[in-house]
Nucleic acid binder design. Structure first.
Length: 625
DNA sequence: ATAGGGTTAG
């Protein structure tokens, strides 16, 4: 076929069916230039494309990335046909132009072309992407009597539409009514249940279905991972690696399981999955590489994250990869690196988006780069064409608040074009606390009591501030309020990975087999610190007593237990990586700095907000978090 | 020519 096309095209025009076959042949081949030559050949000879030819041209252009040319052909077609409409609807769906897809469908319908089994799957997909259940139902009702609902493809896309619109009841009903179901229909429903957190229903379907393919497995694994069920996700992934498993993981599976490692900070597991990806030839996939960056960053290994980032082929280094790297630096308090990576990104010609700026601004905030952050914030919409969103304001309120510029922070909130959410008032409250501004703290706390009445932390912060100021009546009042709403504080816990297993400690925990040794170690610590000639920063400890576990003995905070366990069980010099479910307390922060110096250990603590790299007596956050 | 699993986030 190619030979025929490549023969000189100077001869007379061909009959339409020939042009149609040529364009048909070029679909998906990415020979745009050739397609354009044939197109010109036709145009020069005054042949106007009939419905069939136009349809093939639309398909050809759309499949080679030329959606504008496809649209042009469609708009200038003189002879509309079902086939042409189908081709255009398919092309638009391919490019995610959902609204136009639906418009074109209704235009088609109004011209008397009713649509067929090659039309509806795309229309329902568009409704699904828009979460437009109203439109979906409307199209559904149009075809109720036509019999197309019994087509397997149409049925599956309908079930998917209801799933994506959150209507699982109707999705299930349609699924049960389908006369023929293949594995795709099952997968759609499984994915639907996992999104909604209905694990039992998803598991039942997964067991029940006659054939499971890689998509079924991946839907389960990613569903668990996205809902924070990291163990379930990793276990199922292991099952898939079993030699007599029915399927092998592919790049989507690997990409989906990595967030489970990230969630539980399981660096060793993550490294094993990385090795698997390497052996399976999936390491060069840019999406896998991006998921690896995020995994390494969240498991505390920025070095490995950067290595993965550098290994991505520059041509394949897309927005998400840059965002992930910038965010990784930001969460570790490496603000300067976040900024320089952002500048590298601009030089590479990548257009930043709103996530880029949340990463960049939070990086500035976490490392005290106040002026740099403010400069980027001021010009982000005019220079980089990214609209300022709620989260960007949150970063800058945080930035100003940490720097003690509380009035400016408050003024910024008042000027926001949208309502400030809990993250913003939370930042302001934290800033009010650390800079001892009761007025601002009170103001922020009162907003938070309305916005998130169940969050115990807000009551505790304000109550501690009242206590510090000797305002005991207010303390009592807050306590009564808290009791009446039955607000429970969440218990602090920390874990550390050792020997392929997570060792978890609660505050004051004595249940660990090595508890005795751990407590002996911690009790000996103050003397060691003194002997080494360091003075604990008592001023800091005095006014920043842990807000979450005040009544508890500071020296048995969960992060200290985990670190003690780590020092006792690993060889000298091993980096310790500890994860905590709450914010690290000021007293522990001071203690860990000293431990890092005395025991010559690098200690990396991931708390609920960010990372702390303790080394040689100081922390990467420069006591600024 | 048609449907299903998807990585980044104060």
């Amino acid at each position: 076929m190619l030979k025929i096309i490549l023969q000189p095209l100077y001869q007379n025009s061909f009959p339409p069916s020939t042009y149609a076959s040529i364009f048909q042949f070029l679909v998906g081949k990415n020979f745009v230039k050739l397609g354009q030559q044939v197109h010109a050949h036709m145009a020069v000879r005054g042949v106007s494309p009939n419905g069939l030819v136009a349809a093939k041209m639309v398909a050809m252009y759309a499949s080679s990335g030329e959606i504008d040319s496809a649209s042009y052909i469609f708009d200038s077609a003189t002879e509309p046909s079902s086939l042409l409409y189908n081709a255009m609807i398919r092309a638009l769906t391919l490019y995610g132009i959902t609204k136009r897809t639906i418009e074109i469908f209704f235009q088609m319908h109004s011209l008397g072309f009713r649509g067929d089994n090659f039309t509806f799957p795309f229309v329902f997909k568009s409704c699904a992407d828009l979460s437009d259940v109203w439109c979906g139902k409307c199209v559904h009702s149009l075809i109720l009597r036509s019999g197309f609902v019994f087509d397997m493809y149409v049925g599956t896309s309908l079930v998917d539409m209801y799933v994506k619109c959150g209507d699982l009841i109707d999705a299930r009903k349609l699924f049960d009514e389908m006369p023929v179901r293949d594995v795709s229909a099952w997968n759609v429903l499984i994915a639907g249940y996992m999104k909604d957190g209905l694990f039992k229903d998803a598991e039942e379907l997964f067991e029940e279905m006659p054939i499971r393919n890689i998509v079924s497995w991946t839907a389960m694994i990613s569903g668990y991972a996205q809902n924070g069920l990291a163990d379930e996700s990793l276990q199922l992934f292991d099952k898939m690696l079993d030699p007599d498993s029915e399927v092998r993981p592919n790049w989507v599976t690997v990409m989906s399981v990595l967030p489970a490692c990230a969630h539980s900070a399981a660096l060793d597991r993550g490294k094993k999955i990385h090795s698997f990806a390497r052996e399976a030839g999936l390491e060069k996939n840019p999406s896998v590489q991006t998921a690896l960056i995020a995994m390494y960053a969240k498991c505390g290994s920025l070095v490995d994250a950067r290595l993965c980032f550098d290994q991505i082929n520059p041509r394949e280094k897309k927005l998400v990869a840059w965002n992930t790297m910038i965010t990784a630096y930001a969460s570790h308090g490496f603000g300067r690196e976040a900024v320089s990576t952002f500048e590298d990104m601009l030089r590479a010609g990548i257009q930043p988006d709103k996530i880029t700026f949340t990463g960049l601004l939070s990086g500035c905030s976490h490392s005290g780069l106040v002026d740099v952050g403010l400069r980027y914030f001021d010009c982000m919409s005019l220079v980089y064409f990214v609209e300022k969103g709620h989260d960007h304001y949150a970063c800058v309120v945080d930035l100003l608040g940490r720097a003690g510029r509380l009035v400016e922070a408050y003024n910024l909130i008042s000027q926001m074009p949208m309502a400030a959410g809990p993250s913003i008032w939370g930042s302001l409250l934290a800033a009010g606390r650390s800079h001892r501004n009761l007025e601002i703290a009170e103001l922020a706390a009162k907003k938070l009591f309305i916005l998130e009445p169940d969050n115990s932390g807000n009551y505790i912060v304000l109550s501690n501030m009242y206590a510090e100021a000797g305002m005991w009546e207010e303390v009592t009042h807050l306590r009564i309020q808290q009791k009446s709403r039955r607000i429970m504080k969440s218990p602090g816990c920390s874990w550390i990975e050792f020997d392929g297993k997570a060792h978890l400690f609660l505050g004051g925990d004595t249940s660990h087999p090595q508890a005795e040794q751990i407590y002996l170690f911690l009790e000996a610590l103050p003397a060691k610190i003194k002997a080494a000639g360091y003075m604990p920063d008592t001023t800091f400890a005095l006014h920043d007593v842990s807000e979450e576990e005040k009544e508890q003995n500071l020296s048995s905070h969960s992060e200290r237990l985990a670190i003690a366990f780590g020092i006792l069980n690993t060889s000298p010099g091993t980096v310790l990586r500890v994860t905590k479910n709450l914010r690290i307390c000021g007293d522990c922060h001071t203690a860990i700095k000293l431990v890092s110096k005395i025991y010559e250990r690098e200690i990396i603590v991931r708390d609920v907000n960010r990372f702390h790299h303790f080394k040689d007596g100081s922390c990467s956050c420069r006591d600024y978090w």
